[in-house]
Computed example of a mutant assay.
Amino acid sequence: MIDFAEHNSQSTQNSLRLQQFVDFYNALSASNLADLSRLYHQDVVFVDPVHQIKGLQGLQSYFEHAYERLNSCHFTPVQQAGTAEQGFISWRMRLSHPAINKGELFDVEGCSELRWHQDGRIIYHRDYYDLTDMVYRHIPLLGWLTAKVKQKMAQD
């Protein structure tokens, strides 16, 4: 038999954790990267289409580099689901970086898979997004080429 009170409590806790995750990232900047230890466990594993990082120190170094020149970055949650141990959240990221898209704002859609340690901090974080959408389409020749390849694949 399903205990709906327990299910609703877990659902509320998961929603709260995922909202805190989004809020944390929307407040993150080069000046407050030390706060990563409030969100992430010391032994965190972070994976995205470009990196696989083990440990909080490596993650902090990654973000130091990533936020060094970032003009702006904002996440809007789209959908979410999860349990007491893990959560999934799809998002739309709007960002501006001087090395991408001539510094103009652009959007990237993606999803994060999160697993929590017993202490409530994130022990595993994996981001899924289309690297072509984020970077390659903004490089003149590569953008044109990847668009043509996608077009060709859609026809076959």
Rank of each mutant, 00 (worst) to 15 (best):
V135A: 03
I139R: 04
E109C: 02
G120P: 06
Y25T: 01
L33D: 06
A34L: 09
E85K: 14
L16P: 03
V50T: 09
R115M: 08
F21A: 03
P77I: 01
Y128L: 08
F4L: 10
Q80W: 06
D127L: 04
V47F: 05
F75S: 00
S11G: 05
L59S: 00
K54G: 13
L18P: 00
Y129P: 02
A30R: 06
C73T: 05
L39H: 02
S90G: 00
G110W: 00
V44L: 04
V50Q: 07
L33E: 04
P140R: 01
Y136D: 08
A99M: 14
D48M: 08
Q52T: 15
M1C: 06
D133G: 11
Q155Y: 05
T146A: 05
R115W: 08
A30M: 04
D23C: 05
Q118W: 12
A81W: 15
H125R: 10
Q151H: 14
L145D: 05
V45Q: 11
Q151M: 11
D48I: 05
D107E: 12
N14R: 12
S112P: 00
D130R: 01
G58K: 03
G103Q: 02
L105G: 07
D48N: 14
P49M: 03
S37G: 09
D35Q: 13
D3Q: 05
R92S: 15
R137D: 03
N8H: 12
D107H: 04
Q80L: 10
T132E: 09
L141S: 07
L114K: 00
H125Q: 13
K102W: 04
D48Q: 09
R121W: 05
S90Y: 03
P77F: 04
Q79T: 09
S9H: 10
Q151V: 02
I139Y: 04
A99V: 06
Q79K: 07
L16Q: 12
G103N: 00
L141I: 13
L131A: 14
L131R: 03
Q151E: 15
R38W: 06
T12P: 03
K150C: 05
K148Q: 14
A147W: 14
R38Q: 12
D127S: 08
I89P: 00
S72L: 06
A99E: 09
M93P: 00
D48E: 07
H7E: 14
L105C: 09
L16G: 11
S15R: 11
K54P: 05
E109M: 06
I89C: 01
Q57D: 15
V22C: 07
Q52R: 15
E104Y: 12
A34F: 11
D107C: 04
V45M: 08
L18N: 01
W91A: 01
T12N: 12
D156T: 13
F4W: 14
S9G: 11
D48L: 06
Y124I: 06
D3V: 07
R69H: 14
E109D: 11
S37L: 03
T76D: 10
P98Q: 01
Q20V: 04
K150T: 04
F24H: 01
G143V: 02
D43Q: 15
S72A: 09
L59R: 01
A66G: 08
A147S: 15
A27D: 13
H41P: 01
I123M: 15
Q20H: 13
M1S: 09
